[in-house]
């Protein structure tokens, strides 16, 4: 499998074998870190939209492998303000670095950047579209904690309409033999286009608005934030935000090895009292961003095969 110079733009670009190869590489790197692997290499970190967590995770991943990082964390004060096109910015960064990670508020920006660049582009999020390294770390978290992906019952809870992480993870999981549960209020249901895509791939799914009806069947529960601004009516928001809060009482009678994930930051979807139960793996999940991003950096620059 050759990942050298591959751009990491969308989870749709990956076959099942490629996904598994990334997960295995992350595991190898995590078990046996090589602090000189990226020595002498430079990563451009171009954040056209601020995202502290994603940026720090990428930069930490590169530095822990001995590489250097240049770039900007927010476009103000760069030549972008003077109207430089994305194409030109990438053409320049391409000459300065061995790999480029970027985040951009406009959908499709990363795909365009990949067309401009000769070095690999890692998409750190393009608007509401894709955030493939998040998806990879989510898969890595599932496989690390459950030792498998096939035959799991995986639930998604919260804002499934606008939740980019949910959409991408569902598409990635469609390569595997899984049962999916989409648990959301009517106003925030999983979009039809994604459901159709899953059906075409033969994935069985259930749509449900009441978490308590299905929670006992789940092996993994992926919780997302319900954003207040999605609701025109604040009363409606309160109703849903309250219903979908996970606490110790919610977890009574669930499978003992149910694992709860969350892309973070959380607001009040998961009560802190859940943090010290065996169900909670959301902080490990955030930590898994490092080996996954290291694997993708190492594979696309050709430093690891």
């Amino acid at each position: 499998m050759n990942f050298k110079n591959k751009d990491i733009i969308s989870i749709r670009d990956f076959s099942k074998d490629e996904i598994i190869h990334v997960l295995r590489t992350a595991e190898k790197i995590e078990n046996k870190p090589d602090i000189d692997l990226m020595k002498g290499k430079v990563m451009s970190s171009l954040f056209f939209e601020p995202s502290t967590r994603t940026r720090l995770s990428f930069e930490s991943a590169m530095r822990k492998l001995g590489g250097d990082v240049i770039g900007f964390s927010d476009p103000s004060g760069t030549s972008l303000k003077k109207g430089e096109t994305l194409w030109d910015t990438i053409k320049m960064a391409d000459k300065y670095s061995d790999i480029i990670v970027m985040r951009h508020p406009v959908e499709g920006a990363a795909r365009l950047a990949a067309e401009a660049s000769s070095v690999p582009i890692l998409n750190g999020g393009d608007g509401a579209n894709q955030h493939p390294t998040q998806t990879m770390l989510d898969l890595y978290t599932i496989i690390k904690s459950k030792k498998k992906i096939d035959n799991l019952n995986i639930g998604f809870l919260g804002d499934l309409k606008y939740g980019r992480t949910v959409h991408s993870l569902a598409i990635a999981l469609s390569h595997f033999n899984v049962n999916l549960y989409f648990i959301a209020p009517d106003a925030l249901k999983m979009p039809d286009s994604y459901l159709e895509e899953l059906s075409e791939k033969g994935i069985k799914y259930v749509e449900e608005s009441d978490l308590m009806k299905v929670i006992k069947e789940l092996d993994v529960l992926y919780v997302t934030r319900i954003q207040k601004e999605r609701f025109p009516d604040p009363v409606e928001y309160k109703k849903y935000a309250g219903v979908y809060q996970i606490n110790k009482a919610t977890l009574e009678g669930v499978k003992p090895d149910l694992k709860i994930m969350h892309p973070l930051p959380r607001v009040n979807e998961i009560h802190p009292e859940v943090d010290d139960t065996d169900h909670a793996i959301y902080f490990e999940q955030a930590g898994n961003g490092i080996p996954i991003r290291q694997a993708l950096i190492a594979l696309t620059t050709g430093m690891v095969k």
């Binding site: 969308s10 749709r12 096109t85 994305l86 194409w87 406009v106 959908e107 499709g108 920006a109 795909r111 365009l112 393009d126 608007g127 579209n129 894709q130």
Partner: peptide
Amino acid sequence: ITNNQSITTKFYVLSKDPLKIRCHYCE
């Protein structure tokens, strides 16, 4: 991005009837 910078659009035809196409850029 195709509506924000002057680049040529590209779409993949997913199905002809009913017509469904996917944007190469924003997906």
